[in-house]
Computed example of a mutant assay.
Amino acid sequence: MENFPIELLVLIGLASFRLTRVIVYDKIAEFIRSPFLDEIIEDGEIYITPKGKGLRKWIGELISCYWCTGVWVSAGLLGAYFFFPEIGIPVILIFAVAAIASILETIIGRLIGD
């Protein structure tokens, strides 16, 4: 592990960033969150609360927390890289490229005032 390439760290970091955002925020993953989270809308504000008790509530708390989900996503991507590289590497590359695209889109959107 002492010779872990910085390029790999950057790729897995970017992939982790993007996949975590997909799970926690993006509409495409709403079906993953909906069994575990309730959305409450009050006065135009959206509040997210975990559903149920026990494991269901724990998962709801986990996937509503960007930092918590990020730890597990990072561990999963790193595990995929080491144990299943034929699947892990393409997945990491896809999400890393998507992360770069989303970062660029955010920067450009702010520069042109979207």
Rank of each mutant, 00 (worst) to 15 (best):
20 T>D: 05
64 S>R: 02
2 E>R: 01
58 W>P: 09
42 E>S: 14
69 T>Y: 02
38 D>R: 03
22 V>K: 03
106 T>Y: 15
101 A>G: 12
26 D>A: 04
82 F>C: 12
90 P>S: 07
77 L>K: 00
74 S>K: 03
31 F>G: 09
107 I>Y: 12
47 Y>F: 15
53 K>P: 14
15 A>C: 07
96 A>D: 09
93 L>V: 07
102 S>D: 09
31 F>Y: 10
29 A>K: 01
95 F>K: 05
9 L>T: 00
4 F>L: 14
79 G>H: 06
79 G>M: 07
25 Y>W: 07
93 L>P: 04
17 F>N: 10
112 I>E: 14
114 D>F: 12
34 S>H: 12
47 Y>E: 15
93 L>K: 07
29 A>W: 02
44 G>S: 08
94 I>K: 15
57 K>N: 09
17 F>C: 13
1 M>F: 13
83 F>E: 05
109 G>H: 14
38 D>L: 06
81 Y>R: 03
44 G>A: 10
80 A>M: 07
52 G>F: 11
73 V>S: 00
93 L>W: 06
79 G>R: 05
21 R>W: 11
13 G>D: 05
88 G>Q: 05
89 I>T: 07
6 I>C: 11
108 I>F: 12
109 G>R: 14
95 F>H: 10
107 I>C: 15
15 A>K: 00
102 S>G: 07
24 V>F: 02
32 I>V: 13
95 F>Y: 14
90 P>V: 07
80 A>T: 04
29 A>M: 04
84 F>K: 08
83 F>V: 07
105 E>C: 13
99 A>R: 00
54 G>F: 08
50 P>N: 04
109 G>L: 14
109 G>I: 08
12 I>E: 01
75 A>W: 06
84 F>R: 13
65 C>W: 06
106 T>W: 15
80 A>F: 02
98 A>F: 13
105 E>I: 07
40 I>C: 05
58 W>E: 11
110 R>Q: 15
11 L>N: 01
96 A>G: 12
99 A>H: 04
2 E>T: 01
44 G>K: 10
101 A>K: 11
67 W>R: 04
10 V>H: 03
114 D>I: 09
54 G>K: 13
52 G>C: 14
41 I>N: 11
89 I>K: 05
98 A>L: 15
21 R>C: 10
64 S>G: 05
69 T>K: 00
76 G>W: 00
96 A>Y: 03
97 V>Y: 10
104 L>P: 04
45 E>C: 13
10 V>Q: 05
22 V>E: 09
87 I>T: 11
70 G>H: 04
25 Y>A: 03
99 A>P: 06
53 K>W: 14
2 E>F: 04
8 L>Y: 00
108 I>G: 11
69 T>G: 03
71 V>C: 02
113 G>W: 06
96 A>P: 13
37 L>D: 01
90 P>Y: 07
60 G>Q: 02
8 L>N: 02
35 P>L: 12
62 L>R: 02
33 R>P: 04
73 V>D: 01
81 Y>G: 04
37 L>V: 06
18 R>A: 12
109 G>A: 14
109 G>Y: 13
49 T>W: 14
35 P>D: 15
11 L>T: 00
1 M>P: 15
28 I>D: 11
105 E>A: 14
36 F>G: 01
74 S>L: 09
106 T>V: 15
96 A>E: 09
83 F>P: 06
2 E>Q: 05
70 G>N: 05
52 G>P: 09
101 A>S: 10
24 V>Q: 00
34 S>F: 12
